[in-house]
Write a protein that binds this DNA or RNA. Structure first.
Lengths: 236, 236
DNA sequence: CGCAATTTTGATCCGGGTCAAACGTCGTGG
DNA sequence: CCACGACGTTTGACCCGGATCAAAATTGCG
């Protein structure tokens, strides 16, 4: 019994890394029946800040950006969510409206699970809640970490750090065997992620380029000296 | 059946604000029997970074500081925990050693609950896990918020913000009916909390004093113009 | 009453934010 | 197909908040 679009929970690549990995076959079957898998284009949104929370989203593939709009209407990218991540469960759990917008950053396939269904599953399976809990504890720890980094490292360090994280996720080798990376983010968003401004990010890029560590053309990046780049990362 | 020291979960002031509020009478009775309430002096520690997690702590009264030691041996205050808060559950849930040190900042009464007991309670009562989950989701949201504040507001704003938060928790009126506050923190710790340095904090204090907004003598603070102080807070 | 630790003040310097302008790059309509 | 405008990016110039280093002043303690 496959879901629409051929996306079944049983075959989901990321199932074993998500909260759902403790679910029984019966529960997965139920999920397959009620979930709504969808292929979405970059630029569209899963939900908008202020929307009431109708359910949660499980990202099968692609990339989603969580962004917040401030009073002045500027949108600030807060974090990225990748395959296997469940999105919007915070608002679901707190029973509040969404505090942020979830925007598709790359073509993605996403499964939507209605509120009532999640509620039922949580009641049936106590372990599911615990898995969400562990996941969230990790997230919180990561925030703490990021906060710490922001106040103790320079923009350059943070930029290089982000660059390498993105390389791990989206990097590859070109036909010449050189490490390359296609940035899924605008400079604006890069700046927001590391707590800086587009101008300063641009300057960091120029600097890194002048030093011969990497080469930037638009969103294409060629990591010329990846070893040195790694070496300059802040100690974790 | 009261616990030692006369601290019973049934009479706990903070019970209805903690995760335990959904617990049945039977469970509370069990808790009363197995928990180890203790009065602790400022300067002592509940646990140290790197210690293995033997259980969790529920703060009945007082104040606990969560601090991390970096490679150089400097300790950085990450956050404060007040009455009603459960401490150390993150490491418990992840099954890891404590990632931080929990230090008593004011004389406190703390209840310790052994790992095995918590495990049992969590298995019996699925709601307990969900309550922890909600609590942690809120914490994570708060971190996000704080991160956002740190990169978008000045040290002065952050300092005033902290000052008012502390006033809400520890402030009172003196014999003349003026709002006063006894800081439970050193300048070092204040600096760490707002992501700055002791010197800059000291300068902020001088500035605020020169402007006639407040008067500082050691850890004693007299809030001279509390309305103006509130007005200068960053928009929440 | 000293000695050590904390706090304050002073002087200096630099990362990086802000404002502005030049420069692509792309999509739209003439 | 090109001209045009809107936007994102880069670069330049300037300035300020705040970190750092150093030293004096205050506080707390044995």
């Amino acid at each position: 019994m496959t879901g629409k679009l051929g996306v079944s929970c049983f075959g989901c690549q990321t199932r074993h890394t998500t909260e759902w990995c403790a679910s029984s076959d019966a529960e997965l079957t139920l999920l397959d029946q009620v979930k709504a898998p969808k292929i979405m284009e970059a630029g569209t949104a899963l939900f908008h800040q202020g929307d009431e929370c109708g359910g949660i989203y499980c990202l099968n593939s692609g990339l989603v950006g969580i962004r917040r709009l401030d009073a002045a209407g500027n949108s600030t990218l807060l974090r990225l969510a990748g395959p296997g991540e469940t999105i919007g469960y915070q608002s679901f759990l707190l029973g509040t409206a969404h505090r942020a917008t979830a925007e598709i950053m790359m073509p993605s396939t996403v499964c939507f699970i209605r509120r009532q269904t999640v509620r039922g599953l949580l009641e049936q399976n106590p372990n599911l809640g615990l898995r969400f809990l562990r996941h969230n504890v990790k997230d919180a720890a990561e925030f703490e970490e990021r906060h710490f980094e922001t106040i103790s490292f320079t923009v350059r360090s943070r930029f290089l750090n982000l660059l390498m994280v993105l390389y791990e996720r989206f990097g590859s080798l070109n036909e010449d065997g050189e490490p390359v990376l296609d940035l899924p983010l605008s400079r604006q968003d890069i700046a927001a992620l590391i707590g800086s401004t587009p101008e300063t990010v641009s300057r960091s890029i120029s600097k890194v380029q002048d030093e011969g560590l990497a080469r930037f053309k638009g969103r294409k990046v060629l990591l010329q000296d990846i070893d040195e780049l790694m070496r300059q990362l802040p100690a974790s």
